[in-house]
Simulated scan of single mutants.
Amino acid sequence: MSLTLSPAARDFLDGWLAHQKSIADASDNTLTAYQSDLVHFFLFLTDHHGAPVSLAGLKAVKTRDMRAWLARMRADGKSARSVARSLSAVKSFYRWLSERQDFDATHVLTARAPKFQRKLPRPLSEDAAKAVLDHVEFQSSEPWMQARDTAVITLLYGCGLRISEALNLTGAYRDLPDVLTIRGKGGKERQVPVLPAAKDAVAEYARLCPHDLTNDAPLFRGKRGGQLNTRLVSGLMEKLRNQLGLPDTVTPHALRHSFATHLLAAGGDLRAIQELLGHANLSTTQVYTAVDTAHLMDAYERAHPRQKQ
């Protein structure tokens, strides 16, 4: 089915996406997902009411419409997690729209997403993380690229950075300070202490890099001098996990999970870890307590004398 929007409704959709980009600092992938979710919702309304989506139609959405949309998604085979994500995008759009059009969006904002079991993060064990750090320099043939790969992986694991945060660092950080100021999701700033190993790794990369690391240019460069691509870092992790016999869950983001889980296991304070990761809500960080408990129970079941009888 083709989607037909009134000019006003399309303008509001475009305006909301622009708002997410400029104010909420949403990534391109996030914006694409948001747009897909809203388009699916608008397609449903078009089919459900037999008329193109208009601003008046958006304002008139009722609780029964929301229930019908949620039921349609489940009937189409969407998982509870996907349904919840789509509903979250629609609610965000309606909050923004209702503020500008001064209407009551309660019917949309009170819609309930289906419950789902949140997946636990899949960190590396401490031994696996050490093996990754020990072997990363052997994945490239040129010394400066070896130093670059080591510096990136050390930052991800040693500072808990997202891959985008590490690759967005500029040449101004070729000499890392003791504390990094990172601007993460939603423009939220956080302070991240820098381990000596990370400072040394970045300094060695900067010393060997053949490209001019000016203050306003990317710090981490690809072979031809452009900004290092996230796909190359993902490919690097793929090679490492194949060589080391690690599972497919060992990705660049798993290093951030490992940073948090290993800090918690060493007695780190949950609130402090929340600040280091830049989580807006403590509940997001609390999933790592479940990971740590799972590891403890696994160790108990493998090692406790009663389990060996």
Rank of each mutant, 00 (worst) to 15 (best):
A60T: 06
H40N: 09
D37G: 11
N29C: 06
A51H: 11
D28P: 10
Q35I: 04
H40A: 15
L43K: 07
F42Y: 13
F41A: 13
F41E: 08
K62T: 14
Q35R: 15
A51W: 03
L58W: 01
D28L: 15
V53R: 04
D25F: 09
H49G: 07
G50D: 02
T30P: 03
V53P: 05
T46N: 03
L55A: 13
L45C: 09
V39M: 03
T30K: 11
Y34R: 12
D25V: 14
D28F: 11
T46Y: 00
K21L: 05
L58S: 09
K21V: 00
F44V: 04
D47I: 03
A24H: 10
Q35C: 08
L58Y: 01
F42T: 10
Y34F: 14
D25I: 08
L31K: 11
S27P: 05
P52R: 11
A56H: 13
R64T: 12
K21Y: 08
A33P: 04
V61E: 02
L43Q: 15
Y34G: 10
K62I: 05
S27L: 07
Q35T: 11
A24W: 02
L58T: 06
D25H: 15
A56W: 01
L31V: 10
Y34K: 12
S54F: 05
V39Y: 08
P52I: 10
A51M: 08
F42H: 12
S22G: 08
